[in-house]
């Protein structure tokens, strides 16, 4: 059975299901309780679960993230809300220097079943300090798992998996998409990490993305079909670490052409990793160099026109696809 739900509702449903299943699961974060959450993800939950399970914290990212690491070492399973991922830099010491490495430097004596979640990425005119795409940043560190679900069904299923995972999980939500709707499976729809999703099948070119850029790629696939008679395959990576190399390679072996799309800056980004994997493992299948479409190399601007110009556009992606197909740009 499935029902149409918003991304926000699906996310909340996953957390509630896991709280019902395991009393070690608690929610913590700034204004998630009485206030209901800045993005209303946790709205009303404090009424059902009380302040011990839904804990409001001071504005103290490093402190409460570190406390959550300690709780996780003791067998609790905290889900920490970063009001937005932009504030996670304040907690980077706890996330990177502690959560990610504790298991290793304790010689395997502890595990850190911790989920840190919140909205990531731009698109809603929040300007420089409130706009980042941190997949590559957190994806760099061994010891973390990093996921970026884009559909309501995935956000539920991947949150279920995240809570049950015995490792720290960086859960990057598509903040601009909280209100979008989609079919969501009832009950336990746990989605495994490290498995990409074919968002749309095609034969001529592979568009690879994650987060809200997946939706952009799906629109571009429609355009290419209608305007150019091109059949594009869209891969939603879903999970950055672990990374589904096989899905990318299998698709490129079929289409022989690839465009990697990311909202983040071009240098040292996920798209570069995608390109490297393709040249490592599918070089002989390629009929054109891999293209990357990325955000502009500037801090995110405020004005709507500037912001739109700072992120990949439908047109840029469509033209990148046309270039790898040696077709005329439009």
């Amino acid at each position: 059975m499935a029902e149409t739900k918003t991304y926000r509702e699906a996310l909340r449903e996953a957390m509630v299901q896991e709280m019902e299943r395991d009393e070690n699961v608690i929610l913590m974060g700034e204004d998630i309780g009485v206030y209901g959450g800045t993005h209303l993800i946790t709205d009303g939950l404090i009424d059902d679960w009380g302040p011990k399970r839904v804990m409001d914290t001071p504005i103290s990212e490093n402190g409460f993230t570190g406390a959550a690491v300690g709780m996780a070492m003791m067998g609790m399973r905290p889900i920490v809300e970063m009001m937005t991922w932009n504030f996670s830099f304040l907690a980077a010491d706890q996330i990177i220097q502690h959560a990610a490495k504790l298991r290793y430097f304790s010689g395997g004596q502890v595990q850190i079943p911790l989920v840190i979640r919140g909205p990531n990425g731009g698109g809603v005119q929040l300007s420089a300090q409130h706009t980042h795409s941190l997949e590559n940043f957190y994806g760099h560190f061994p010891g973390l798992k990093v996921v970026a679900p884009v559909t309501p069904n995935d956000v539920k299923g991947m949150m279920i998996t995240a809570v049950r995972d015995p490792n720290p999980v960086i859960f990057l939500e598509a903040g601009a998409l909280y209100g979008t709707k989609g079919e969501v499976e009832d009950g336990d729809n746990a989605v495994p990490f490290g498995k990409a999703r074919i968002a749309c099948e095609g034969d001529d070119v592979t568009l690879i993305a994650y987060g809200r850029q997946v939706n952009l790629c799906l629109r571009v696939a429609d355009t290419l079909e209608e305007e150019d008679g091109v059949s594009a395959e869209v891969i939603d990576l879903r999970s950055i670490r672990p990374f589904d190399e096989d899905a990318i390679v299998a698709s490129v072996e079929k289409t022989h052409r690839a465009v990697a799309v990311q909202e983040q800056w071009r240098w040292f980004g996920v798209a570069s990793e995608v390109a490297a994997i393709i040249q490592d493992r599918a070089f002989d299948y390629l009929d054109a160099p891999v293209e990357r479409v990325s955000g502009a190399e500037v801090p995110a601007p405020y004005a709507r026109n500037l912001e739109l110009a700072a992120f990949p556009s439908d047109k840029q992606v469509a033209n990148a696809a046309r270039r790898v197909l040696y077709m005329e740009e439009k």
Partner: peptide, 22 residues
């Protein structure tokens, strides 16, 4: 544990104490 970042273990210890009570 022993920890190498000055101050880094303090939030963790507080979380451990909280968990003991939880």
């Amino acid at each position: 544990g022993g920890y190498g970042i000055v101050g880094g273990h303090i939030p963790i210890g507080v979380g451990i104490a909280y968990a003991l009570k939880y």
